Simulated scan of single mutants.
Amino acid sequence: MPRRMRLVTWNINSLRLRLPLLEKLVRHLAPDVVCLQETKVPDPLFPEDGVKALGFEHLHYRGMKGYNGVAILSRHPLKPVTQTPVWYGKEDCRHVAATVCAPEGDVELHDFYIPAGGDEPAPETNPKFAHKLAFVEEVTEWFQSRPLNRTVLVGDFNIAPLEHDVWSHKQLLKIVSHTPPETERLNRWLQTGFVDAMRHFVPADEKLYTWWSYRNRDWKKSNRGRRLDHVWMTPDLLPNLHGMTVVREARDWESPSDHVPVVVDFSLSD
């Protein structure tokens, strides 16, 4: 039987602050690879010893002080993907990529943290929203120019593209993360050669969330969520998919992130 790989993606919202939660996640789920976003730690201060103590000997990360930051933690050797662009002309640590070198076969893995976009969905007056739209456009063009096979793309995309990826499609159409300019661009990126692995298991007409605001006193009762975190795969890996889980209970952990981890299980060989 082909060996399965368990992959987790999670916007941890400060790795050093929530290292104990990462330990809890690893203890409960035993992932082979973890992709983190919003690590909020410059590279010289990355807690390598603490992460390696969890069983991840192979690390590839890019971080800065106070915000952003992405990291791939792996039990398998990693070969960094070089020559990735400087998106939007900013060295702001929003993308890291590596080939996961497993005995059953290699997989190219991309970990993204897309700009949030500010509050106003108006690129003419909101530079943060203009940055977000341009970022997704640049990424789309780059993937269109690359041969894609055995590739997995994960991260906090800060966009909930489908009607049932938000608690109220009608009320959020003019709210950043669900506006047509964002969702249309994200769908064009998906169409460069990927499949939405989460929606492979949960039909598009069912609600699916990965984020609940800190502003909700009782997030579970109000359930005003959005699916901002995503897992995409190239079609050649789709037959190897075995399962997907949104770890909702992580939203109730002590001092939680406002995002919860997403888990996918897949085989690396037929």
Rank of each mutant, 00 (worst) to 15 (best):
V96K: 00
P103F: 12
G225S: 09
N13K: 04
V264D: 00
H230L: 08
N68Y: 09
L45T: 09
D252I: 13
V154D: 01
G155N: 08
D236I: 09
E108W: 01
V246C: 08
E91R: 15
W87Y: 13
R18N: 05
G155D: 06
A116W: 07
E124A: 15
Y113H: 12
R18Q: 05
F135H: 06
R3I: 11
V136A: 05
L173M: 12
L78F: 08
G225Y: 02
R18E: 00
H131N: 12
P85C: 13
S255K: 15
A204S: 10
D270F: 10
S255D: 15
P147K: 12
R75S: 10
R4H: 10
M5A: 09
L190K: 11
D156C: 13
A130T: 06
L237I: 11
G225C: 10
S269L: 12
W10V: 02
P147W: 08
K221H: 10
C35T: 10
L133E: 07
N13M: 00
N216D: 15
M244I: 14
L190A: 08
E120T: 15
L109R: 03
D106Y: 03
W219C: 07
G118I: 03
I175S: 14
V231H: 00
W10N: 00
D229A: 07
G69R: 02
P235K: 13
N158V: 09
W189H: 05
